[in-house]
């Protein structure tokens, strides 16, 4: 198959814009899902009465529905009761809604891996509960939940590919547009794969580097 390089060059800026959008949505989505994840995992860790129930319902709902359906509900459904968000905000909210539960599961397993003796030692030093969390439990938990978090980050970046469903001009959207406009299918698809590799490969390599580095960070083993 002869590739039309002129075409690829001409539409490169479209892809770059789209890639920036994909990265921006993923960045904010992942940031907020980490925030949601930390809050939810701390609530579940301390078994705070009512909130714990709400969090576990949220986690079940978010883990058992596809992102695309969540986005359709946010973008097309909610405006009918007066909540109107732009497509990009919907995408970030949807991603945070989905990612929050995945992050929370990873962080919680990290929190639970911190030994009881650590907490007791902190208590015997007279540290308050909040200080113990901040200085003793959380740093250690983070180290052991990093592999899970990294896997979630990659998963969430991949999930952003569905935002084209709510008319955001991401990589998928541009590709579909170009295929529909000019029938340059091979070129458009090759650019699509290349751009996703450019975004995802460094993240994946970085993730495995961090994981390898953190294997030495474990306490007492």
């Amino acid at each position: 198959m002869g590739l039309d390089f002129g075409f690829m060059q001409k539409y490169l800026p479209w892809y770059i814009d789209a890639a920036i959008l994909t990265v921006r949505v993923s960045f904010f989505g992942i940031l907020f899902s980490l925030v949601v994840g930390v809050i939810c995992s701390v609530i579940r860790y301390y078994k705070i009465p009512v909130l714990q129930r709400i969090v576990s319902v949220y986690i079940e709902i978010s883990r058992n529905t596809p992102l695309l359906v969540q986005l359709f509900f946010l973008y097309f459904g909610l405006p009918k009761i007066g909540i109107v968000w732009s497509a990009e905000i919907c995408a970030v909210v949807g991603l945070a809604f989905l990612g929050g539960s995945y992050m929370s599961e990873s962080i919680r397993s990290g929190l639970e891996s911190v030994e009881k003796s650590q907490i007791e030692s902190a208590a015997s030093l007279g540290m308050s509960k909040a200080l113990t969390m901040k200085e003793v439990i959380f740093p250690q938990a983070l180290a052991s939940s990093v592999p899970g978090i990294c896997a979630n980050v990659i998963f969430l970046i991949k999930e952003t590919s569905v935002v084209s469903g709510i008319a955001l001009a991401d990589l998928m959207y541009v590709t579909k547009d170009l295929i529909g406009l000019y029938y340059e299918t091979d070129e458009a698809l090759i650019m699509l794969v290349a751009f996703y590799l450019v975004i995802l490969l460094p993240v994946s390599v970085l993730a495995s580097l961090i994981e390898r580095r953190l294997r030495y960070a474990g306490f007492g083993n």
Binding site: I154, K158, E159, S161, M172, L192, V193, Y196, L201
Partner: peptide, 16 residues
């Protein structure tokens, strides 16, 4: 590493 949607596009548009 590829989003499943990309694979779907390749199979549906590219292979055809």
């Amino acid at each position: 590493i590829m989003p499943q949607l990309v694979l779907l596009f390749i199979a549906y548009f590219g292979v055809t």
